[in-house]
């Protein structure tokens, strides 16, 4: 607060520099996406000289981008719902001292390990397994592989949220005769809602943007997710359609941006409420 005056302009300058640095590439993506094809040659002006939705129309008409969006949503929502359901239950048990059983230590260790191990190590053996099970023409391998990424992440984060809750509330409810299931659903879950939202958003993002497993497990363009479709736009043998790529980038950003915009208070509250305390 002291010495605030001389520092203020410097502060604003630094902030503006940071904002330009962070946002300019995003602006550039938007500005490429809305220019006419004819403008995307040679040196480009900073501000678009033309305006058109032709790249977006092109994506939906010739690249079946609508199907990719549906596929991405299907895979992301199914895997996220399952991962949340399984992960929350598991995290709760691991976080509470009153649950004691033999494998608990091993489980904790394994979950932690899975968050750390490199995904490429799992890719080939999983592929061979899925292929032997005859699942490759479906979306199941992709959903399962996203579970493999997201369950450890959810368990890992949610344990800290559960631990941050005082046990006393549960104990007094238990005295009043509530069953374990009631305790979990009615007493505990509502209290971790901010943290849950933060974790759900981050998991959604991971799944939505995931590329490595998708590139290996998805067999047919019928099941292409958005990152896969985007990568096909940068083809080796033909000229790259920058406008389409930019438009696809804009579309891929939409759902996540909406999430963050509407749930950002949850996100911050969740993240400061315990997860990052670890």
């Amino acid at each position: 607060m002291r010495a605030a005056l001389p520092k203020r302009p410097v502060k604003y300058l630094i902030l503006s520099l940071f904002l330009v640095w962070t946002l300019f590439p995003i602006y550039w993506m938007f500005s490429l996406a809305i220019r006419e094809k004819g403008e995307l040659f040679g040196a480009l002006s900073l501000v678009p000289r033309s305006f058109s939705f032709e790249h977006f129309v092109d994506l939906f008409k010739t690249k079946a981008f609508g199907l990719s969006i549906v596929n991405s949503l299907t895979v992301t929502l199914i895997s996220l719902s399952l991962a949340l359901a399984l992960g929350l239950a598991c995290a709760y048990i691991l976080a509470r001292a009153r649950f004691r059983f033999k494998l608990k230590g091993a489980m904790l260790f394994w979950v932690l390990l899975l968050r750390i191990l490199p995904p490429i190590a799992f890719a080939l053996p999983l592929y061979i397994l899925m292929s032997d099970a005859g699942l490759l023409s479906t979306k199941i391998p992709l959903i399962l592989s996203h579970l493999l990424i997201n369950i450890p992440f959810i368990v890992w984060f949610m344990i800290t949220f559960f631990e941050a809750l005082p046990v006393e509330v549960e104990e007094s409810a238990a005295v009043d005769g509530a069953s374990e299931q009631q305790l979990f659903l009615r007493i505990v879950l509502p209290q971790v809602l901010p943290g849950l939202t933060a974790v759900a958003i981050l998991s959604f993002m991971t799944s939505w943007n995931e590329y490595l497993y998708s590139a290996i497990f998805v067999q047919s363009p019928r099941n292409f997710t958005i990152p896969l479709t985007l990568s096909t736009l940068n083809s080796e043998q033909e000229l790259t359609q920058w406008g389409n790529i930019a438009a696809g980038g804009v579309l891929s950003l939409v759902p996540i941006a909406i999430f963050v915009l509407f749930a950002q208070n949850f996100l911050i509250a969740g993240l400061s409420g315990g997860a990052v305390k670890e």
Binding site: I93, L94, W110, L117, A121, F122, L148, I151
Partner: peptide
């Protein structure tokens, strides 16, 4: 028993998907 019921689905999925590949 409750603890196993709650935690085993997640662990089962993770085990099948990770221990075999490893």
């Amino acid at each position: 028993l409750y603890a196993y019921m709650m935690s085993s689905p997640a662990m089962l999925v993770l085990t099948v998907l990770s221990i075999f590949p490893l």
